[in-house]
Nucleic acid binder design. Sequence first.
DNA 1: GTTCCCCTGCGG
DNA 2: CCGCAGGGGAAC
Length: 291
Amino acid sequence: MPELPEVEVTRRRIAPVLIGRTIARVKTTAQSYFFLTPPSRLRRALLGRSVLALARHGKYLIASLDDGRELLLHLGMTGQLFTSTVYSPRLLSATQRGALTPGEQQRFRPDAHTHLQLGFGDSGPELYFRDVRKFGKVRLLDRDTVDPRLARLGVDALAAKAEHLFASARGRRVPIKTLLLDQSVLAGVGNIYADEALFLASIRPTRAAHRVSRVECQRLLSALKRVLRRSIETGGSSINDFVGPDGQDGHYQDERWVYARHTQACKRCKTLIERIVLGQRSAHFCRTCQK
DNA sequence: GTTCCCCTGCGG
DNA sequence: CCGCAGGGGAAC
């Protein structure tokens, strides 16, 4: 679900309510592969700690603890990180939503999908990490240890240079979209923004990476950065599950050109947007605008 | 390189 | 019942 913009929106809104507060209560669900660090160890390690800084690399959030350790967070497909002061229907299942009378609000109640709850030594809001599908990840990193997942990440997409993309594409026969989604090439790009950037650069997602010229790589990366920045500005994309940490939906979905618009007319040329499958993921494009 | 898997819920 | 979902890793 969340790509770079949604993770960055989350980081910016969570940081002020997380940094500098002493963790006084930790609750977790039972062990599952969501926990790369066993929940019992996580509870012990976090108690009494505070967070000094919250950074992002690609789709990972990295909280620096005051004892030199780090907490890695990944939202996977359905991860939601938010505070107890928020309310959003996206935090409820459809059944629960249906039981609400229109306009009714209720405080979030931690449920079986709320895998991590942090309470603090003041009267301020608690922090929740909820994830229905459990594709998200939490890991405690000891001082001076390197997480192999982080180590494999390429340059953050917002900091990348076109020459890097071109060099990474050379000799690669994979579809250009598959290359964009490769986190060891550009960290942070996911399905929505790969499709959107390829549309804006007029390149078909299926084109072999080595057939994308240097100039096209420049256009592609510049389109990608533009799309990512604009999405951050508008609070990210709320198409299925994403809810901002303050409970607000993002609005970038209103500006998309192709993602999940298959069977609808291209906003530029009226050709029907197509949906194909590429590397087990859906890809959306306009065959008139993209070559 | 593909292919399958992890998991839960929604909508046709 | 089936297919689908902003993720990623491991196994052929």
